[in-house]
């Protein structure tokens, strides 16, 4: 059987009724454009501030026209900048590396464990399947602070606090419920007929999983991975309490910049934020079709 032709077959189950509220012309584009720009303004202004010099960032009244400068970005990566003549090591290259490394590893682990589990929940329902899934979702819905008190003590006792292993383990568990629900929603959508046909032809369960099911959910896996990356990338409370000086992630370091141990340098902060936001905004663009499913943990598909 050809692997390429099969996925297409399974996906074509949607009705042909035309849906939606209709079309509008360029008039609507202008109206929606104005609203979107106003809505996007807080982000835009921060990005602009990142290119302003220190005095321009604090200008009264706000400067709309200014000479763009890269000094803030240089300071993020140059490690040292002087405020009132004192050189302070910002270490943001380390924090960015930490954020990428920790998010990447934990999402990869969560994907491997979670995809298998999602396939299990979808194809071989356990007794009490719904209960398991409910508990899994609940662990994600919980306020982080509820879990963190015992975890904090647990990490101190085992010496995991402040290490990469500890925070990666925690983030893997943090991503797992999301990965399972999300991947289950993708597996549930596949038509079982193709799999049954393959089984009749003598394929083993392993082969069915790798040759039939996986190729159909590659897009789903990519979307899940990216959502997991964003969630982990943005996470603050766990990172605040469980990372040490060497494993600190960007959100924690950013919040400390506001807290003011190096004085609030709004231009620099805006530059850090801009660097921090660029991947997220890019990804939002590519994920648009999966956004709904992603933000509701796979519970709402369309």
């Amino acid at each position: 059987m050809t692997d390429a032709a099969l996925p297409r077959l399974a996906m074509r189950r949607k009705s042909r009724v035309s849906r939606g509220v209709g079309h509008a012309g360029w008039g609507r584009t202008i109206g929606a454009g104005v609203v979107s720009l106003i809505y996007f303004f807080p982000v835009l202004w921060i990005v602009l501030t990142a290119f302003k010099s220190h005095s321009d960032a604090l200008a009264v009244p706000p400067k709309w026209l200014f000479t763009p400068t890269l000094e803030n970005f240089v300071q993020v990566f140059n490690r040292a900048y002087s405020a009132d003549g004192v050189a302070v090591d910002t270490k943001f290259d380390l924090f960015f590396f930490n954020s990428i490394f920790i998010a990447g590893t934990s999402v990869a682990l969560a994907l491997i464990i979670g995809t298998l589990a999602a396939f299990g929940f979808s194809r071989y329902p356990l007794k009490g399947n719904q209960t398991y899934l409910f508990i899994i979702l609940t662990t994600r819905m919980l306020p982080a602070i509820v879990v963190i008190i015992p975890i904090l003590i647990m990490f101190r006792v085992t010496g995991l606090a402040g290490t990469y292993v500890g925070i990666i383990m925690l983030y893997t568990a943090f991503n797992l419920p999301f990965t399972i629900w999300m991947m289950k929603s993708f597996f549930d959508e596949l038509s079982p007929d193709v799999e049954d046909a393959a089984r009749l032809d003598g394929s083993s369960d392993t082969k069915v999983f790798f040759k039939i099911c996986m190729p159909q959910v590659y897009a789903g896996i990519a979307a899940t991975a990216v959502f997991g990356l964003i969630l982990t990338w943005n996470e603050y409370l766990f990172a605040l309490l469980l990372t040490g000086v060497q494993t600190r992630t960007v959100p924690v370091a950013m919040a400390q910049t506001i807290g003011g141990d190096i004085g609030v340098r709004w231009g620099l902060l805006a530059a850090i934020e801009t660097l921090f936001l660029i991947p997220v905004i890019l990804v939002t663009f590519f994920l648009q079709n999966h956004l709904l499913r992603g933000v509701t943990f796979g519970t709402v598909k369309r």
Partner: peptide, 16 residues
Amino acid sequence: ILVLTPMMLSYVAVGA
């Protein structure tokens, strides 16, 4: 995209 972006941002960034 412009409207959907805020949802994907970090609380820390929005707080800042």
